[in-house]
Simulated scan of single mutants.
Amino acid sequence: MLIWWREKFQCADEISLDFSLFEKSLQGAVYETLRTYNGIPFAAYKHYSRLKRSVDFFKIPFSLSFDEFSKVLKTGAQEFKQEVRIKVYLFPDSGEIFFVFSPFNVPDVESGVDVKISSVRRIPDLSTPPTLKITGRTDIVLARREIVDCYDVILLGLNGQVCEGSFSNVFLVKEGKLITPSLDSGILDGITRENVIKLAKSLEIPVEERVVWVWELFESDEMFLTHTSVGVVPVRRLNEHLFFEEEPGPVTATLMENFEPFVLNLEENWVGI
């Protein structure tokens, strides 16, 4: 593991935090999670913009330019001989920023994963905006304790609408149409979510972004999740409902097959890198 902090790279065992900084870290940090493709950080500018947006909620200066941000990403990633996961944390009270680089082996999800509906409801937008990515959100922390032997859990809103997973966005397929909760459902505007919508439209797959009710998940033909680390993750089972036994449905399979070539060739994903 490699860490960039206070303008230099250090190994994890070389890091020593004074108590005051540790105490501030307990109040939460805004963050972003990135990964590399072929050693190059994916959608760096989009992640930078989201991080800056989260910082703006606290009305504090954000002095790190995108050029500086991307330079740290590229320099750190070059230290590894495999794909890398990168976590970026910024503590709002102190303005301290950390980049944490670690080796990343993409998990095999092609045979599908099991998910379930969480008993924890999404915090209402007026309490914590869904566009604020911050550690220590009680709804996410509590929901993740329910994952156990599942891949992820799905959080609903106070009205029973489908929101998102604890680290993923949700898609379903009904009669060949791709459906996903709209941003006003109380979800984060996932970067992989955005790419999948663009991919589907390029393949002339009809797309609907709207309020989705929980019962619709169980009546859908296919279901999958999206997140930065893996891309498209087919859902084999939701609670006790089985979507497939051997292979994902045709729409999910098509998106999985075309996802990586699409994102690698979409110019906006590689701005400034």
Rank of each mutant, 00 (worst) to 15 (best):
V212Q: 04
T180N: 07
D93V: 15
I15M: 15
I60E: 04
R53I: 09
N258R: 15
N105Y: 08
D114C: 09
E260G: 02
L142D: 12
R137D: 04
Y31M: 05
N38H: 11
W4K: 02
K87E: 08
F244M: 04
F42R: 14
K81I: 05
A200M: 04
I40P: 00
E32T: 14
V72P: 00
F9T: 00
F259D: 03
V271E: 10
N239A: 09
L132K: 06
Y31R: 02
K177M: 08
Y31N: 05
G231C: 07
L73C: 01
K198E: 06
T131H: 08
E268P: 00
S111Y: 03
E208Y: 10
F19N: 04
G186C: 09
N38V: 03
L203W: 02
L156Q: 06
T131A: 09
P130K: 12
V115M: 02
S111R: 09
D18F: 11
N169M: 08
V55P: 00
F66D: 00
I123E: 13
K74T: 14
E260H: 10
V148N: 11
L255T: 11
K133G: 05
E14I: 02
F244G: 03
L34E: 07
Q78M: 12
A200R: 03
S229D: 12
F57R: 12
Q10A: 08
F22N: 07
A44F: 05
E7Q: 08
R236C: 01
L183A: 06
P41L: 14
T180A: 10
L126R: 12
L155I: 10
V141C: 00
G136A: 10
K198R: 10
L51W: 09
K52E: 09
K46H: 14
I3M: 06
N169S: 11
E216N: 04
K81F: 09
L26F: 11
E240S: 12
M256N: 02
Y31F: 15
N195E: 06
F171N: 06
L34M: 13
V233Q: 03
R144L: 09
P92R: 06
S94I: 15
K87W: 10
E219A: 01
A29N: 13
V84N: 02
K133T: 07
E23G: 02
E245Q: 08
R122E: 01
D184N: 14
R137Q: 11
Q10R: 14
S220K: 02
D18Q: 12
V30K: 03
Q78K: 15
G272V: 13
I187A: 02
H227N: 15
I179C: 03
V173G: 01
G95S: 07
R210P: 03
T128F: 05
I179Y: 03
F42C: 14
L64G: 00
E268M: 02
P261N: 14
T131I: 12
V30P: 01
Y151I: 07
R145V: 00
L142I: 13
F58K: 08
L188G: 00
R85T: 11
C150V: 08
Y45G: 01
T36M: 10
G165R: 02
V115G: 01
I154W: 03
F58N: 06
R193G: 01
F58A: 07
R35D: 00
S182G: 14
I3L: 08
